[in-house]
């Protein structure tokens, strides 16, 4: 058995790491959210005025609602792409399964920024998609809504987060014993019934985990609106960024961040609870 001194020694680095890079920043953020900026100077007098501002100015609520709608759209699209893909790979791909799996994972090795720029090239007014539409004589002149719109943000984030949604669903599907599928068929259920009654219910924990990934990661995203979103799709993280930067109002930015952390943690807790309810083995 390990000695107590040894146990203390090996737990020190992770504790230090978590303390220094997680707990301390959160504590600073929380503290900032109660402070204020006057005449370009940080005033360390705790009160709730930042939170009052958040609730009284409708612009923040509006941005938050937009952010959540975009995150919800990304979640839905990633599920609609990721689930069928995971299902096909797990149950019907046969021999090329490993190769296809790698192909789904490969985009994760490519820089987020590069993928963002790729979408800019595809969706732009001189872009690949517009060129293609004109070539087919479907449109005359560029279609404007493709780039610098919430649509573009949803497309780009869906592309980026679909593998994150795919992975937990795939893992859940792989864990379903194949004899359960055989038992279902044996008892008279065709493919559709077997999917709806057996496979789908047993894959719900993976589905919830994937949806949580997509939603939470989208909620905090600020690069996609910056690259392909334009002014019409400013998200909550962009507001935080500008408050910390140009606006030099770290306290208000911190207050928004605290709100975002609360929303995120609540979502994670909710998702964890739901996953437990749907876990059987």
């Amino acid at each position: 058995m390990y000695s107590n001194a040894y146990k203390k020694l090996v737990s020190l680095p992770p504790l230090l790491w978590v303390g220094l890079f997680l707990l301390l920043p959160y504590a600073l953020m929380l503290a900032h959210s109660f402070w204020a900026v006057r005449d370009g100077m940080l005033v360390r007098q705790p009160d709730l005025h930042n939170y009052v501002t958040l609730f009284s100015k409708p612009v923040y609520a509006a941005v938050l609602v937009r952010t959540m709608r975009i995150a919800a759209a990304v979640t839905l699209c990633s599920l609609l792409l990721g689930y069928p893909l995971a299902y096909y790979l797990s149950f019907h791909a046969g021999a090329p399964k490993e190769l296809l799996y790698q192909l789904v994972i490969v985009p994760l090795w490519v820089s987020y920024l590069v993928r963002g720029y790729a979408w800019k090239t595809i969706l732009g007014s001189e872009g690949v998609l517009n060129g293609f539409f004109e070539y087919l004589h479907l449109t005359h002149g560029p279609v404007a809504f493709l780039l610098y719109s919430p649509f573009a943000v949803v497309v780009m984030l869906t592309h980026i987060y679909t593998p994150f949604v795919f992975l937990p669903i795939y893992a859940a599907l792989e864990h379903i014993p194949r004899t359960l599928v055989e038992a279902s068929e044996d008892l008279g259920a065709g493919a559709a019934q077997t999917f709806l009654r057996i496979i789908l219910p047993l894959s719900i924990p993976g589905l919830l985990a994937g949806a949580t990934f997509a939603f939470v990661l989208s909620l905090g995203d600020f690069l996609a609106p910056l690259l392909v979103g334009g002014a019409s799709s400013t998200m909550i993280a962009n507001v935080v960024q500008s408050l910390f930067g140009a606006a030099y109002d770290r306290p208000l930015g911190s207050a928004i961040s605290v709100g975002l952390v609360i929303i995120t943690v609540s979502l994670l807790v909710l998702s964890e609870r739901l996953e437990k309810r749907w876990r059987y083995q």
């Binding site: 014993p177 359960l180 055989e182 279902s184 219910p201």
Partner: peptide, 9 residues
């Protein structure tokens, strides 16, 4: 089935 294959849910 050998391992019964009962539906866990």
């Amino acid at each position: 089935f050998q391992n019964y294959a009962l539906f866990p849910h």
